[in-house]
């Protein structure tokens, strides 16, 4: 591997960006109802673990994905309950949720599989790779687009669906209304809380898929803290994409490419630590293009007289 750019780089970009994209879409729908979901990292981690657990218990990779989705949705209800009903600070709840996810997964890893650090079963089936008829025979494009786990395609489909939902349907319109001005939405009889719950649940489902792609799509194992900050990168992707599903696709593509690039660089006799640093540095650099003055807006909302 002495070439920096080739077809397989873009192929692996698609594979790697999938968890980020799925989680970032989850972040986007939460942001659209006014909840800044810092807990994406934890949700994805729970998804990754429960996908492996589901596969172990049910012996079927599809049921395992479903199991992961359900588990993370249940877990995300906790986020919804504490931040919506108990009125806790959303950021604090998100951070604590990350702690809880880390704690629960390591605990369950010990309690259920009786291992520390990582669980690996060489007989376990991962997600299949789909070769798309016709497209796979097109040169270059086929090599990039074809031969991925179904969740890769699901991620892009989810992005398009979410875009249509948010901007074309009545229900999506009301969801955006609930996020933009909850007081006004409430006064119109729009059930703001119910919508917020719905958004958190969808976000949970997407993060469940993201986790499943991590633990069953890219590898077939679970390691402690295997999300390694991808949830936070997804959060930045959400912000850069301005919570628009198509924008989120664009920013996730950028981060996926960086990730793939950093893996590729490991073939170039650079210390692993530096190549691993690359995605974080690039994410940080990307934030320079997104001026964040949310603290002022938050403060205005919290202190303004029209409360």
């Amino acid at each position: 591997m002495d070439q920096l750019f080739d077809i397989s780089l873009f192929n692996s970009t698609l594979r790697i960006l999938t968890p980020i994209l799925l989680a970032a879409l989850g972040g986007a729908i939460c942001a659209r109802v006014g909840l800044f979901n810092v807990g994406l990292e934890g949700l994805v981690l729970v998804g990754a673990f429960s996908a492996i657990l589901g596969n172990h218990l049910l012996g079927n990779v599809w049921l395992a994905v479903l199991f992961a989705v359900i588990c993370v949705m249940l877990f995300s209800l906790l986020f919804a309950y504490v931040s919506i009903n108990l009125r806790a600070n959303v950021i604090v709840v998100g951070i604590s949720l990350n702690f809880l996810a880390a704690g629960l997964t390591t605990f369950c890893l010990r309690a259920i599989f009786d291992v520390k650090g990582a669980y690996y079963d060489k007989n376990m089936q991962g997600l299949p790779r789909w070769d798309i008829p016709l497209i796979k025979d097109i040169p270059v494009l086929g090599g990039i687009v074809s031969g991925h786990s179904p969740l890769v395609y699901a991620a892009f489909a989810a992005a398009i669906l979410m875009w249509v939902y948010l901007f074309k349907t009545v229900s999506g319109f009301r969801l955006r209304a609930a996020g933009e001005n909850p007081v006004a939405a409430q006064s119109l009889g729009i059930p703001v809380r119910r919508i917020q719950y719905g958004a958190v649940l969808v976000s949970g489902a997407l993060c469940g898929l993201a986790g499943a792609q991590l633990s069953l799509g890219q590898v077939t194992m679970f390691t402690e803290g295997m999300t390694a900050g991808r949830g936070f990168i997804a959060l930045v992707a959400t912000m850069l994409g301005q919570s628009n599903p198509l924008g989120v696709v664009a920013s996730s593509l950028l981060f996926g490419l960086m990730d793939a690039f950093s893996i590729r660089l490991q073939g170039f006799a650079l210390p692993a630590q530096f190549t691993q640093m690359l995605p974080y540095i690039m994410t940080l650099a990307a934030m320079f293009f997104f001026k964040d003055r949310s603290y002022l807006k938050d403060a205005q909302r919290a202190n303004g007289s029209s409360r």
Binding site: L86, R87, A88, S96, F99, L100, L109, A111
Partner: peptide, 22 residues
């Protein structure tokens, strides 16, 4: 296993910011 501690700490952190007196 000792990881039970993480479960306890994370749960109590999660709920400490909740406004029960709200």
């Amino acid at each position: 296993p000792l990881e039970v501690a993480s479960v306890i700490q994370a749960t109590l952190t999660l709920f400490v910011s909740a406004r029960f007196g709200y």
